[in-house]
Simulated assay, not measured.
Amino acid sequence: MVGIITPIVGITTYIILATIGLLISFFSSKGPDVLHNLGRLWSKIIFKAARSKIDVRGQEHIPHGTPVVFASNHQSQFDIPALYLAIPIQFRFVVKKELFKIPLFGLAMKRAGYVPIDRTGGKKAVKSLRAAVRRIKSGTSVVVFPEGTRSPDGKLLPFKTGALLVALKSGVPIVPIGIKGTHKILPKGSLWVRPGEVQVSIGRPIDTTLFQGRDAKDELVRVVRQEIARLID
């Protein structure tokens, strides 16, 4: 029953909470923060419906008073509610711009202040990258998935450089995050939810200003991937 009920509960509660959040966002300057907090509430409901538990370690490593880029592995769509519950500060997801075209979902993301990225290449991609850098420098912490997609088997995929480039160009710390267990709850390509336990491990921040020179981007990718691999091992 969990496999059937959880998606129904997730969609229904999302529609209700997103509608409430959108109405508030049009009348209050705190609308984005309200939408984010409603996202946390939705995540708690999802975990309860799925009869799943979450264990979070390393929250003390999150810097306060400065924006950061959280870099996480990506095993499942269940990573989204897991990160909402694991990260105790306001943040925004960096997502591909195509998702903003989805009715209600796209509008809610826009009003919440999610950061769109154009992955088609060329001038549009560069423009979206610069916009993301400006958002981070202005004080917005973001979550990126350097793998670029969900892992089909839960194992760590090669990293794409673009996701971490925003941190390098912003000069803000990268906080690595390792997620375990979400792949078993909701594998890629499946809508059937299984009860399980999720472990989210938050690592120590990585100072991006230490990476200089021609190989800075590749070296940063290597270090971040190595740290995330350690967290999920």
Rank of each mutant, 00 (worst) to 15 (best):
M1S: 14
V2A: 10
P7A: 11
I8R: 07
T12F: 15
I16K: 11
A18L: 07
I20T: 12
S28E: 10
S29A: 10
S29K: 15
K30F: 15
K30Y: 15
G31T: 03
G31D: 04
P32A: 02
L35V: 03
H36R: 06
L38M: 06
L38D: 05
L38G: 01
G39I: 02
G39P: 01
K48V: 12
A49D: 07
A49T: 08
A50R: 00
D55L: 12
Q59H: 07
H61C: 10
T66G: 06
V68L: 11
V68R: 02
V68P: 03
F70E: 07
A71M: 09
A71S: 14
N73H: 13
Q75S: 14
Q75M: 13
Q75G: 10
S76D: 11
S76G: 11
D79F: 04
D79C: 08
P81M: 03
P81D: 07
L83H: 07
Y84K: 08
L85I: 05
I89F: 12
K96V: 04
K96P: 06
E98C: 09
E98R: 11
L99R: 12
K110H: 14
R111V: 09
G113V: 08
G113N: 11
V115E: 04
D118I: 04
A125R: 06
V126Q: 14
S128N: 01
L129T: 12
R130L: 13
V133C: 01
V133A: 03
R135Y: 08
R135V: 03
I136K: 00
G139V: 03
G139F: 03
G139T: 01
G139P: 01
P146G: 04
E147S: 02
G148K: 00
T149N: 00
T149Y: 06
L156G: 00
L156A: 02
L157K: 13
K160E: 15
G162L: 00
A163L: 00
A163N: 05
L164W: 00
L168Q: 01
S170T: 05
S170M: 02
G171L: 04
V172S: 00
I174H: 04
P176M: 06
K180T: 14
G181D: 02
T182P: 09
T182Q: 08
K184C: 08
P187C: 12
K188G: 08
S190L: 11
S190C: 10
L191E: 11
R194F: 10
P195M: 14
E197D: 14
Q199Y: 12
V200G: 04
S201I: 13
R204Y: 13
P205T: 10
D207C: 06
L210W: 05
D218T: 13
V221A: 12
V221T: 12
R222F: 13
V223P: 05
V224C: 12
V224M: 10
